[in-house]
Design a protein around this nucleic acid. Sequence first.
DNA 1: CGGCATGTTTCGCC
DNA 2: AGGCGAAACATGCC
Length: 264
Amino acid sequence: MPEGLEAEIWTRSAQTLAGRTIDRVWFDERVAPPDLGDLLTGRRIDGVRRRGKIMLVDTDGPTLGLHFGMTGRVEVDGAAPIAQLEYASGADRDEWDRLRLHTGSTATSFRVGDDVVALRMNDPRRLGRLSIDPDLERLGPEAITLTKAELTSALHRRSAAIKSVLLDQTVVAGLGNLCVDEVLFWAGIAPTRPADEMSGDDCSQLAGMCRERLGAMLAAGGSTHGVLDPSVRAGLPACPRDGSPMIRSSIGGRTAVWCPEHQA
DNA sequence: CGGCATGTTTCGCC
DNA sequence: AGGCGAAACATGCC
């Protein structure tokens, strides 16, 4: 489920934790540095922000980084900001929990019950990771505010397919497989096109669609709210724009869905 | 059983 | 050095 849009939704939801103190930490040692609990216990949460697909919990000590992998998700104070279920059955089993942050004292008099987990990460496939003071230097510009100049610069000397290059987080940060197909669809650009052969107009169009479509998808609820949502990808109906047969293939090891008629 | 999945990381080869 | 593609990772679902 998680791309940058989901990380943004969860981040906004978790901002309610600001001002609270972390009283207790439980985590799955297989997905985090061993001293993560010691480093966070007793710290006050200063704020929550996002960079690319990473959610960042700033404290008066270190910053906690949450990377969601393919199936990670977040609950804040016992409520899931994104209600959509990843799996049809048993979609939220305790044994898939990777992080549980308990908070008690707050900036106000509000107090959460001891049994409620303030911040919970659940990840069935366990490809997600928890980190302390994650390195953000290598991440490219934010997809959701991407400018033509940023994109043009990022694609320089990248001869691989534009779809693969856009999925590289050091090129542009925050795009996942669904959103990449979505913005390419709207920009009218075939995913197979070599990235460094984009024209100025292509870069302008593509960057503009990143801002416009990602903004719309965020408002609608995330990366599964585009015209090429998972149901469309599975069923592959006619192109929603021109009615032509859509194509599904593998590009850079990822499934690509596009319309060969208007994406060239 | 085989194949697929909204993501990274690693490795061998240019 | 750095880009590229394939494989690996881990697990559930269809």
